[in-house]
Design a binder for these strands. Structure first.
Length: 200
DNA sequence: CTACCGATTATCT
DNA sequence: GATAATCGGTAGT
């Protein structure tokens, strides 16, 4: 009998993106790669997120309405939104509180690695644990995520990219969002605060 | 069709 | 702290 691992259900994402951004702290981000030696499982605890969207967020990709790129943000909650940034990096988001009029998503900015660290060191061309996944672009390199995964269902336990139940985030800190030029006054960036000791 | 620039990172000083 | 790398989405001609 295998232990029962459950994905975060779709209803979980039917709230304001700020609620979801905080709620995702402590959850497990899981990536499964197919390989000749069988599936490789990469996983980490989500430790930093940012909320985007709602009615008045000029920093949101959906702020100016539906476009080909952001269409997934107007679709099903709990789906994956991946986009290319600065011509060379990818950012991973979860669609939340989305409907045809109001779109929203949560950017996953940092995770604490649990499984598949050796593999991720190879992808990242780095051996420093701390530097492997402490940024949105780095996460996508470490987990081999690109736009081909746009539209994947995070709530499906069969998905090659999904979010499973994790640990409880006891203390959460809110900060200003990073790397944006509008909406900078909002404290919509959330960090899980704890006693994490990073191995070297 | 063209021009601008971004939810970033690595690598300098 | 500053900046180059690099490309497609978006808006405007």
């Amino acid at each position: 009998m295998q232990p029962r691992i459950t994905c975060v259900p779709r209803d979980y994402y039917n709230f304001d993106t700020n609620i979801v951004a905080k709620g995702l702290l402590g959850k497990m981000l899981v990536r499964v790669l197919r390989s000749s030696v069988g599936p490789i499982r990469l996983a980490g605890i989500i430790t930093e997120t940012e909320a985007y969207g709602g009615y008045e967020d000029p920093a949101s990709h959906a702020f100016r309405g539906l476009t080909p790129r952001n269409s997934i943000m107007f679709g099903q909650r709990g789906f994956c939104y991946v986009y290319l940034i600065y011509g060379m990096y990818h950012c991973l988001n979860v669609v939340a509180y989305a409907n045809k009029k109001v779109a929203g998503a949560v950017l996953i900015r940092s995770i604490y690695l649990i499984e598949g660290i050796k593999t991720m060191k190879i992808f990242r061309k780095s051996s420093r644990f701390k530097d492997l996944t402490n940024g949105p672009g780095k996460i996508c390199i470490a987990l081999m995520i690109d736009r081909t995964l746009n539209g994947i269902d995070f709530t499906d336990s069969q998905s090659c990219l999904r979010i499973e139940d994790g640990i409880k985030a006891y203390r959460i800190k809110a900060n200003k969002r990073v790397g944006i030029t509008f909406g900078t006054e909002l404290n919509w960036r959330y960090l899980m605060v704890g006693d994490i000791d990073y191995p070297t």
